[in-house]
Design a protein around this nucleic acid. Structure first.
Lengths: 387, 387
DNA sequence: CTGAAAGCGCTAACAC
DNA sequence: GTGTTAGCGCTTTCAG
């Protein structure tokens, strides 16, 4: 309990509790000198920072308490090397004592950096197993903290994919964006690039090989190849594919992994592929048709949602997934993890994606011009009962 | 293409493309009058704010273009009623022309409002079906936009539940918090209340009836009662419960709905309840034991995760969910939606929760003192094949 | 109804 | 090493 000379009669800092505001370890040199230290400027109290929401302490408060100038406090925080050890110590003590934390708005205004990263957060369609972006955001939030940033979410306007970005950019609300959802090409990326806005894409610039922005992606083809090889190794030779529309870049990429794996073993893919919407009923119907017409013994799917559709068909027909027909999905969603029997699935290393995204972001924020680096990560296969 | 008096020799606004910067519907008055319209202020166009990332236009730029003072522009934005119609029109034209959007940092600094809402975003445990918070965040983001706010995510420190809140609060980074995850009481809420920090809780102050903060919650007991009544109506009389530890307030609440529904029909609950961890294997084991020892014909579960455990057991024993044994889960997760056969589940109205949370937030932000209002919403039951 | 002055809290330049 | 000066872009008095 640090007890500074308190104004007599005043409410004092009766609240007691919250001295431990600052993380900075043990109290240190700011320790109680006891009341009655008649030093000159009568370093009075940090006016109970707790209690009602009084305004938080400012740089000036810290400076006064530490007996230095405001600038010195600023330096203590941003350029500690510039201070003499004892001064630094004294300032830090004052900081923790007051529970001081620099005002973000003021700092932003001055440095032109909000330490915020914007990301469009589009709702997950109901009735699917897709939650990749949700999982990714969790990792992104964690990683951003490492570099002192926070994640700002904004809603997507289905009409205008660029709307949310534009306003945040013009109001300098965020330092950078993480652009996602690049299935059908990436208008946001092109737009952001044209604006000169710092951003990193989760997803390759499929539709624009000349793009100059940094991106991070997962090698979907490698994932489906992993899945297909796994099935081939288990003796399957007629392995079907259920994927998405042809104009979906990600879908075509994943499809190629399946096709290449089969071709590499001299197996044909003809009649074994299907393209549908990413919905459970679509996967269900597609698998029923394939089963009837091509008699595959295994399925590789572009998503867990489609794979669940296959499981529906198998259940309909009294077939056991994994024993009668093998199924592998993509995304290692919660659904794959908890469905009875378990659904084997290709798992994207989203934590790693977040790490790379933040790394690229950090680089981009110091670089004057974007450095067009792409990082391609390899997924893994989680094998469960369905294969 | 709008062409302002450009500095000769300068790169000028060559980029062309992006006139559509502003959302504001059809071009309106700023429309191209074509080159060579020598009107006074030369109402030029949205001056390619694009190009390289030059600094965005400021209030002063708008003022100059509109031929008024800076505060007039400010008023046009914040108190349009104060302006004469024609002046307002002129300013607005300048705003859209320049693609002006007020600098957030500056505005925050001045108004002491960041228009940001903070929320701790804790990772979803792997292997469960729980994604309630993810779904909620989507709705929250949407709702916040309605009132001109954005959502700021911060990671949770498992050690110190208050850590993230504290720093954001002291740095005035957010206007308010949405406090979630109140299963075991709500230390954050108590702490935030003590700090006088504006916040709304998603979840009742279970452990502190004297709490004075606004909250929104879903009536879990009503949900499980709905589920139980549904099963009773279908003729089930031996309905088992699989829930959580006794110290979990939410779990006990949900349990009471089940128990009350049975008691109301004069049925006993003894031997029919089980308390376990919220994991699939736990639900699986618990249901196996219950099936052996109490021979229930139906299960109501505190979560979809546990319900999936029941489905595992049924699959193990060759029993058909819905035909041989009925199962109802809680949360209407993706898993419930796509699992073969479908899992009936109690659905929380998260969109509505978000609406109420934001409403309460808005109220709290204008109220000097917190008004202790609680809103309790009623869930619905989604019936699928499992019951 | 519009303009002029002040200042939110901070940090980048320079003095000392 | 430390203090002084200035100003980021905005809104809130208060005069006209």
């Amino acid at each position: 309990m640090v007890r500074r000379p308190s104004r007599p009669g005043g409410p004092d800092d009766a609240s007691g509790a919250h001295d431990d505001a600052g993380p900075g370890g043990p109290a240190g040199p700011a320790g109680p000198t006891g009341p009655g230290t008649p030093s000159a400027p009568a370093p009075s109290v940090p006016s109970t920072p707790s209690g009602p929401s009084s305004t938080p302490p400012t740089l000036a408060d810290v400076a006064e308490l530490a007996g230095v100038s405001r600038q010195t406090v600023s330096n203590a925080l941003n350029n500690p090397d510039l201070l003499r050890a004892d001064t630094l110590e004294r300032v830090r003590a004052a900081v923790t004592q007051l529970g001081y934390s620099p005002n973000r708005a003021a700092r932003s205004l001055r440095t032109r950096s909000s330490r915020l990263v914007g990301m469009r957060f589009a709702p997950v369609p109901e009735g699917t197993a897709n939650a990749t972006m949700d999982r990714f955001v969790h990792s992104l939030v964690e990683e951003c903290r490492e570099v002192g940033h926070h994640v700002l979410l904004f809603p997507g306007d289905p009409e205008d994919p660029v709307a949310g970005y534009d306003e945040l950019l013009r109001s300098t609300a965020v330092d950078a964006f993480v652009a996602t959802d690049t299935w059908l090409g990436n208008p946001q990326a092109a737009w952001l690039e044209a604006q000169g806005a710092p951003f990193v894409a989760f997803g390759r610039p499929w539709d624009n090989p000349a793009a100059r922005h940094p991106w991070v992606d997962v090698d979907g083809a490698a994932g489906t190849r992993l899945a297909t090889d796994h099935l081939l190794d288990r003796g399957h030779e007629r392995i079907a594919w259920i994927g998405w529309r042809k104009d979906n870049f990600i879908g075509e990429d994943r499809r190629s992994g399946w096709a290449d794996a089969l071709h590499d073993r001299g197996l044909s893919t003809s009649g074994l592929a299907s393209r549908v919407e990413d919905l459970v009923p679509s996967g269900r119907e597609a698998s029923a048709v394939l089963l009837d017409e091509a008699a595959p013994t295994a399925f590789v799917c572009a998503s867990d949602t489609l794979a669940m559709g296959v499981l529906h068909t198998l259940a309909d027909r009294g077939l056991a997934a994994g024993r009668d027909v093998a199924v592998v999905g993509f995304d290692d969603s919660q659904v794959a993890q908890v469905v009875p029997g378990g659904l084997s699935s290709v798992r994207q290393p989203l934590e790693q994606v977040a790490v790379e995204v933040v790394r690229a972001l950090a680089e981009r924020l110091v670089a004057p011009r974007p450095t067009a680096t792409g990082v391609l990560l390899t997924p893994t296969l989680t094998v469960r009962g369905s294969s």
